[in-house]
Design a protein around this nucleic acid. Structure first.
Lengths: 337, 337
DNA sequence: CTGAAAGCGCTTACAG
DNA sequence: CTGAAAGCGCTTACAG
């Protein structure tokens, strides 16, 4: 592999000048610049990034930490994150954690060992002490999708409470009074906030929140048929299920089909996220849409601001962006009957 | 940030000894080791990766180059690639190209500037001169999913011809004689090989390949309704459509629904890939399954072998792995009527 | 406008 | 078993 020294020798200049040309410094004679550029082309020279990082103290990479990249929500936001990073000249290291703490710790090590300039977290738990400590140490990081309980740090999230309010109110207006909800762990702010929105609206309509209508996804996943059969076998069974992610909603549609419950006639179903497949004619899922591309873009732009601030020795204010949800009415809620 | 020098001072040893402990060298007195380890813990020291890379000439990262991470096939293989890489202590830099050459060139620069030790390509064109040159230069890289026309380099692919044969033969055995095929660009080996399998079987059954039954996805995408309407309006319209990816098949199901053509009664549909949603009760897509997790794992293992060989100065033989397809019969083909 | 020198933070022979 | 020194390949003041 050719080095800057090889280029310098070939162009008959010093290594400093090669570096100046490479970094577009002013004060290089056009003729000198051309000689260097020619030598670079002739040798097919590419500067060694490690050497560069070592002296500049920046890597040009960021880390993206998500639970599971196969989850369409994360795949769709990842697209925006990679594209926007590239526009800033940044690379993205993909870290998947399967929601395991040890794997998240590994991702955090990337920052500590200066392999990345910043970190974007998509699947943080509300009480995550490690991420909280990282933020408080002033390391550049941005949360998206989910936030910490303390509201610490910079983040880009949907107004999840509002989104859940919209979905619940939509079902109420369609006449539903017994609305079940399928939620994930309340350790995640997404579920906690969506559940709050759901409960709020019910109360505003004078409907008590019935804990028999709150299904935990973990229990459901362990026995789908049994869980839904029990739900439907209640004295006053629900007429609608609000699944707090589209992924959950797809599973519910699956189980209802197995139980021969027609949707929406026998049961209305609403999801959350508006992943691509939700709009497919065979699915037609009514759901709450998030601007996933925008969320990814804003997360990167926020992180870039934090990284720049740190490099300039500033202590930046946290950046907190809350995006607007949008209700997408399709077939599974029954509104289009 | 603390450095190895800080650790050395605190432990009362030299920097060399710190390095030895860090790299698990033998010949370090247990007591000395402990002192160093304690100092590392007290200072929360993490070795600077750039400095390490500079001297070891390895980065501990690989690049994953795919067209679009939102494509479930790539998201699902990416999972296997990230997990396996981690088991080797490697990080994954995610490069998405949108099938643009300039973006693929950028990914290749990562290798030239020694930001990654190797590259895994998921979306290579058959006639890609740049990737071919890279392989011939001996840079560690592995293709998966798609290969080059010259069959150069190391790769992990499905036996696409065989997969297409299985799907086509299945339709023939169901009595279909007019089978349309929806293909992507033949510049990609996946489509070229699947198309070959399709044509082969037809010929073996004494059925001429009718070019009016070969639909290009680009034309279809531009006017879905019109394209299918024209297909169905032929004198002898097809009774089945073989979409060469599940993504295409989902689109076909969508368009057929708009045209009020019942599946499978009015039209049988078969896909390729077996992405997760294909098995959903609302979709029930008959398709050719690929072991996407396995493919990702094997791609990384192959790349690790190439990287190791190169580091040891060996010139390794290309590694060529061809995986077996599996036909998954669901509802859209009509076999389960 | 250009070059010589120092230094980023590690690892690795080479001594001892 | 341990340390002093060199060097990986760049960038960046500092001179001139």
């Amino acid at each position: 592999m050719p080095t800057a020294r090889d280029v310098a020798n070939r162009a008959g200049v010093s290594q400093s000048t090669v570096s100046r040309v490479l970094n577009n410094h002013p004060h290089v004679r056009p003729e000198t610049r051309k000689r260097v550029l020619d030598a670079i082309a002739e040798l097919d020279y590419h500067p060694n990034q490690a050497a560069r990082s070592l002296v500049t103290q920046r890597t040009g990479s960021i880390g993206l930490v998500v639970g599971d990249i196969r989850n369409p929500f994360f795949a769709e936001t990842a697209k925006g994150i990679v594209d926007t990073s590239r526009s800033y000249g940044y690379r993205v290291v993909l870290c998947t954690t399967d929601n395991q703490d040890t794997l998240q710790s590994e991702a955090i090590k990337l920052l500590r060992s200066q392999e990345v300039d910043g970190l974007i977290f998509g699947s943080v738990r509300m009480d995550d002490a490690e991420v909280l400590a990282l933020i408080e140490s002033g390391f550049p990081c941005v949360l998206y999708n989910r936030v910490l309980k303390t509201d610490a740090g910079s983040y880009v999230v949907l107004d999840n409470r509002k989104g859940a309010r919209m979905a619940t109110e939509h079902l109420l207006k369609l006449g539903h009074r017994r609305i079940a909800v399928l939620t994930g762990s309340r350790q995640f702010s997404t579920f906690a906030h969506r559940l709050e929105g759901y409960s709020e609206v019910l109360r505003e309509y004078g409907i008590p929140v019935d804990r028999h209508l709150i299904l935990d996804h973990q229990a459901y996943a362990a026995d789908r048929i049994g869980t839904l059969r029990r739900l439907l076998g209640q004295r006053r069974p629900p007429t609608a299920i609000f699944a707090l992610t589209d992924d959950y909603a797809l599973q519910v549609l699956d189980t209802l089909a197995e139980l021969d419950v027609p949707v929406p006639e026998g049961m209305a179903v609403v999801g959350f996220d508006d992943i691509r497949i939700a709009g497919h004619s065979r699915i037609g899922l009514t759901t709450v849409a998030q601007r996933k591309d925008l969320m990814g873009r804003l997360a990167v732009e926020s992180l870039m601001e934090l990284i720049t601030a740190r490099a300039e020795g500033r202590t930046p204010q946290p950046i907190r962006l809350v995006l607007e949800p949008q209700l997408i009415v399709r077939r599974t809620c029954g509104a289009q009957r």
